[in-house]
């Protein structure tokens, strides 16, 4: 099997573009959320300044090896996810390192960061971090369930485990999107999407009022900056998957930008209007509303 080495710099270029887009998009969404609160919100470049400042902090203390590795794992999860799914369909430069079975790997990477975070937060020794991570793991696991079901439904529908093939099957018009060919799967996945975006009503994990602020309580300086980097990349990577699986992928960067923006906006759209569930309430909510939809989606196929 020959490997095209040129793919690696191209994939890194994707990561770079996505990182910048994520930084700006995060600020933009925050500005839009602030608008609902009738204020202006942060400047659009604020995330960059925060990042530079956090890298520029003079001291940073460590609580142990896993404390170091937590953010690294988290970032690996984000970048790994992005690297192995095609970002722009049909483009040689930006189809990244996608391969035939990448859907399975993507599912794994979605979870990877959280697990790494669990180790890091556990090592930090702060009770709030420990409580936060228990909540986070249980909630993410349940949110993952409908998503996995939806992904299986899609995989069954298109009879493939390659994201590229799934996107290919959806080309040729809006009506070919999974959104219309299998609405149940999309509905289940979008509910799961809400759960994984760490916005209300499912952000009890990092809720400042209830546990200040959960797993990242002890993270600071460069560690926090690493997590900020991930916070720019990981949601976009996740949305790339959603976009590819359910919304026909993207054939160009502008299309990518618009679709990701709309997906991001969706989570903010719900998040601004609702308070947060308690963790067992959100688990029950997923089990009652999202999981049956996922099962139905599989049956539909």
């Amino acid at each position: 099997m020959s490997f095209d080495w040129m793919k690696i710099p191209y994939a890194l270029l994707t990561v770079f573009i996505v990182f910048n887009y994520g930084m700006l998009l995060g600020a933009l969404i925050q500005k839009i959320g602030a608008r609902a609160g009738r204020r202006h919100g942060i400047p659009i470049w604020q995330n960059y300044v925060d990042l530079i400042k956090n890298y520029g902090q003079r001291t940073s203390i460590t609580h142990g090896v896993m404390f170091y590795l937590g953010p690294v794992f988290r970032l690996t999860g984000g970048i790994g996810l992005l690297l192995f799914v095609p970002t722009i369909y049909g483009s040689y430069m930006f189809s990244n390192l996608s391969f035939a079975g990448d859907l399975i790997l993507a599912l794994y990477f979605v979870f990877f960061g959280t697990l790494g975070m669990a180790l890091g937060a556990g090592e930090s020794g702060h009770p709030h971090a420990a409580i936060g991570i228990t909540r986070g793991l249980s909630q993410v696991s349940v949110a993952e369930l409908p998503f996995a079901l939806a992904v299986f439904a899609v995989a069954l529908q298109y009879q493939t485990l390659s994201v590229t093939d799934i996107v290919a099957a959806q080309q040729g018009g809006v009506m070919n999107w999974t959104l219309f060919t299998n609405p149940l799967a999309v509905a289940a996945a979008m509910l799961a999407f809400l759960g994984s975006m760490m916005r209300p009503p499912f952000d009890v994990v990092i809720a400042p009022q209830e546990i200040p602020i959960g797993p990242p309580t002890e993270y600071h300086s460069a560690y926090l900056a690493l997590m900020q980097t991930n916070r720019a990349i990981f949601p976009i990577a996740k949305m790339v998957i959603y976009m590819n699986l359910f919304f026909g992928g993207a054939t160009s960067w502008p299309e990518f930008a618009v679709k990701v923006f709309l997906l991001y906006l969706f989570s903010a759209f719900v998040g601004v209007c609702f308070p947060r569930f308690r963790v067992e309430q959100s688990i029950r909510w997923f089990l009652i509303w999202a999981v049956p939809l996922g099962v139905l989606a599989i049956l539909w196929v």
Partner: peptide
């Protein structure tokens, strides 16, 4: 931190833990 004065636009934010605050 609320609409009237909106310190966020000046790059001022609130953090809940001392680790992240400066």
């Amino acid at each position: 931190m609320t609409p009237r004065f909106d310190a966020y636009r000046y790059g001022i934010q609130w953090r809940p833990t001392p680790r992240q605050a400066n």
